[in-house]
Simulated scan of single mutants.
Amino acid sequence: MNNRNRGKNTGDDTLFGSEKQISKLKRAVQDMQYLLTREYPEKAASELAGNRYRLKTRQLHAVRGASASRLQVDNRKSKELQISDLKDKTLYLDGFNVVILLESMLSGAYIFEGVDGCFRDLSEVHGSYKRVNQTAKAVDLVASFFQKSHLYKLVWIFDQPVSNSGRIKQTVMDFAEEHQFNWEAELQYNPDKFLAESSEIVVSSDAWILDHCKEWFNLAGYLMKEESLSVNLITIVSR
């Protein structure tokens, strides 16, 4: 029986569970945006912010994910589509990025809202993907979105080098066949490059993809509102 989930890591409540820590992370994001806007390299900017606020590794990971220059934010916002823009369109979905984020959201892990309005988690695929308790529900949520958006076709893109990518691809295709959805699933050796260069709408919270793609849709943001998901959301962006 599968008892795995993508919930919090040991120590995450200490790193992210108090106003003191959230305040520190907000200041770090402000500093990083200031530096990135002035064309500091991301590595240098994150090292400066991390050292200044004495951030732990997972805190720094969250800050990096939430940060972007003002030019990056403006560029991403200019390409963001709304649900009403998707009717009869084809959409390419960054498979592991989306599935793992939804699994994390559903299992109570901390989720971070960035300056670009995207939502990110702290989970990573280190060469191998394993199903968790929330995987089926994650696919169900994508299915609900697919039906409500009236998309023509949804194409899942998975990383071929990742172990078990073939299994999750088959899971998605079996689900599509069962429900008669117009879905496809592909394995790509370099999915980031593939998605960034695609002329189709993409779904991803990967910063590099968002910077280079033609158009994108904020699926996690949509699902949180539309499905009234209970999410352990941390906003480390100053309003």
Rank of each mutant, 00 (worst) to 15 (best):
L91T: 07
A49D: 05
S18D: 04
V98K: 09
T135K: 15
D140L: 03
S23P: 00
L102N: 02
R131P: 00
S104G: 04
Q82M: 06
S23H: 08
Q82S: 11
C118S: 11
I100L: 06
A136E: 08
N75K: 09
M32T: 13
E103C: 10
S84I: 07
I83F: 04
Y92V: 01
V125E: 14
L25E: 04
E80I: 02
D140N: 14
V29P: 00
G95E: 14
A68N: 08
S123L: 11
Y129I: 02
R54I: 01
L55M: 14
P41N: 09
N51M: 10
L60C: 03
T135P: 04
F96Y: 15
L106T: 02
G17R: 08
L60S: 07
I100A: 06
Y40L: 05
V98S: 09
R64A: 01
T57S: 06
T135I: 07
S67P: 03
G95C: 07
Y129Q: 05
G117D: 07
T90Y: 15
E80L: 10
G114F: 09
L55I: 11
A62I: 00
E124A: 14
A109G: 04
K130N: 12
A109M: 04
K77W: 05
K26I: 02
S69Q: 07
R38Q: 04
L93M: 14
G117P: 05
L106N: 10
T57R: 09
S78V: 01
S18M: 02
E47N: 11
G17W: 07
G95D: 12
S78R: 13
L81C: 04
S78T: 03
E42P: 00
N51F: 06
V98C: 15
S84V: 09
T135C: 13
S78Y: 09
G114C: 11
L36G: 05
N51H: 06
G108N: 09
E42R: 13
F96A: 12
E19P: 00
S104A: 07
Q72S: 10
L36I: 12
R27E: 15
P41C: 05
N97Q: 10
M32F: 02
I83K: 13
V63I: 12
R54T: 04
H126I: 15
G17T: 06
D88Q: 09
L93T: 08
Q21G: 01
Q82D: 11
V132D: 05
L81E: 06
E103L: 11
A109H: 08
I100F: 08
A28S: 15
S128G: 03
A68H: 10
D31Q: 08
Q82Y: 10
R70E: 10
S69V: 01
A66I: 01
E42F: 12
K130E: 06
G50Q: 13
G127T: 12
M32G: 02
R70G: 01
V99H: 07
A49G: 14
V139A: 09
V29W: 07
L91S: 08
L55E: 07
G65Y: 02
Y129D: 03
L55G: 11
M32D: 03
H61N: 14
L60T: 03
V139T: 14
R120V: 07
